[in-house]
């Protein structure tokens, strides 16, 4: 078994009185891609956003149980949410670059963390762009507006921005659902390369994408974790009938 990066035990999540996640328990391995799949409203995105407490901004939420990143309870007392999110970065469905230059988008997180040294900033920006497989396409126009990039490039810019602050974990919420097949393929190849250095958790509506990019797959339904196993097992020989029905398109 791979080294565990994120441990989830009996995790419940409530929006007010509405319980949307029921006793989720799973171990997410380090330097692997874990895909969360399931029909709309199954709780997979809520679960993803629970890992770096992105749900905190929603009023009336409540959690029970534990999510440990490197054995530290992210909902424990004394947790600095800002530093948690620095270690557990996030990429969203819709690319959301700031209306600034390409350079400033990537440097932003570093600047608010207090980095001022121009040379170090330059290095970090080009390293992050390189890791996000965008450097070659933008290196001659780092000062151009990020908004002038194509959709696929914007999404990779957002990945570069997330990588700039040097996280361990990258959460991706349908990172390719708004992209065409070529841009999607680039994101998928990127995900595949990034797992060498990062632990990745990805929510996707696209089961084929889960099959292609992930090592482990968790199938959610109505707020419950139905099955969690090696991706190959899930797609070749799942042990739960419900999983089989979902991935073969018999419902959902």
């Amino acid at each position: 078994m791979d080294e565990v990066k994120i441990t989830v035990r009996d995790f419940d999540f409530y929006y007010g009185t509405n319980k949307v996640l029921h006793a989720i328990s799973l171990d997410i391995p380090k330097n692997r891609v874990t895909a969360l799949i399931g029909p709309s409203g199954c709780g997979k995105s809520t679960f993803l956003r629970s890992i770096n407490r992105m749900n905190d901004i929603i009023p009336g939420i409540r959690v029970d149980g534990k999510i440990l990143v490197d054995d530290v309870d992210v909902y424990g007392s004394g947790i600095d949410v800002v530093s948690l999110r620095r270690r557990v970065g996030m990429v969203f469905q819709k690319s959301n670059p700031f209306p600034k230059s390409i350079y400033e988008n990537v440097a932003y997180g570093l600047r608010i963390n207090g980095l001022r040294d121009k040379r170090k900033l330059d290095e970090a920006v080009s390293r992050s762009l390189d890791r996000a497989a965008l450097l070659d396409e933008v290196k001659d126009r780092l000062n151009a507006s990020a908004l002038a990039l194509s959709g696929g490039q914007q999404q990779r810019l957002c990945i570069a921005r997330a990588l700039a602050v040097d996280p361990d974990v990258l959460l991706m919420d349908e990172p390719a659902s708004a992209l065409d097949p070529i841009a999607t393929q680039k994101i998928e190849e990127l995900v595949f390369d990034l797992k060498k250095n990062y632990t990745i958790v990805i929510v996707t509506h696209n089961m084929q994408q889960a099959a292609r990019v992930s090592d482990r797959t968790a199938f959610f339904m109505l707020g419950k974790l139905v099955e969690y196993d090696d991706t190959r097992t899930i797609f070749m020989n799942p042990s739960v009938k419900l999983t089989e029905d979902y991935i073969t398109g018999r419902f959902g």
């Binding site: 099959a211 292609r212 797609f235």
Partner: peptide, 9 residues
């Protein structure tokens, strides 16, 4: 080959 079909379509 079966894994390739299952995971790579």
């Amino acid at each position: 080959t079966i894994e390739l079909i299952a995971t790579m379509q």
